[in-house]
Amino acid sequence: MPKSLISIHDLAKEEMLHILDLAAQFEQNPASSLLNDKVIATIFFEPSTRTRLSFETAANRLGARVIGFSETGSTSVTKGESLKDTIKMVSHYADLIVIRHPLDGSARYASEVSSVPIVNAGDGTNQHPSQTLLDMYSILKTQQSLDGLQLTMVGDLKYGRTVHSLLQAMALFDTRFIFVAPPELAMPSEYKQFLHHRNLIFKESRDLLPHIPDTDILYMTRVQAERFQDPMEYEKVKNVYALTASMLQPCKPNLKILHPLPRVNEIATDVDDTPQAYYFEQARNGVYTRMAIIAFLLGLK
């Protein structure tokens, strides 16, 4: 079976660091002809414009040609084709497949029936490992180290796929975690146990402001209305964790704010012009990270 990237758990710490190192190399030299004889397929069974454009940019910057679809309306999936058959077919066309699918576990299954490497670009609520790696790349790039940092996670910590994966990856390093969320969206106990088993320090809080002065990385997430059974509850908490520029005084000089985007009202636009805002650069880092992932899986770097 070719090497695929399905879950952040598939990577050993050394492999993660190797991919981050490759990403830094691609950032230095973003135009490459490494893949000019390769075809990359991006097959998106549900729309995700941001992720798809990022992967396609990465493939293009590596010199590869790109095939694929961005939603299933015009494909055989609407005729009832199984995921297995779609993957079998595409793996005979392309050298690597990037897949986004609404069902949990679909990417793992795809990697078991494919003859070429699979990159999971999001399988339902389960995993999205390239997001985690680009988050880590952004942390490494802005802090020069992944060790000894205070990572404050804010917003929807219950359902947020990105915070769970980032937590698990950063648990390989010496990280202090602060979880800021309303009780309805608190970090699930399985992740707190996970940190406990690794003797890592974490703190839960309902207030963001007291934690800003000690934070190195502030990881904001969107609180989604559809997560709440009672719309009144959403109205109560939706603006509780909205970050404004005035809240960033005082803060550490190295503090950076990350957000997987899209944001709604959890980061006020006046934050965009502060030196702490890093979410748009974070999106650009995604391209270098995805170039690194593709090159790594194809064994070219």
Binding site: L103, G105, Y109
Partner: peptide
């Protein structure tokens, strides 16, 4: 939502 509950 697991793939095993939707496909063979």
């Amino acid at each position: 939502k697991c793939i095993t509950n939707h496909q063979n």
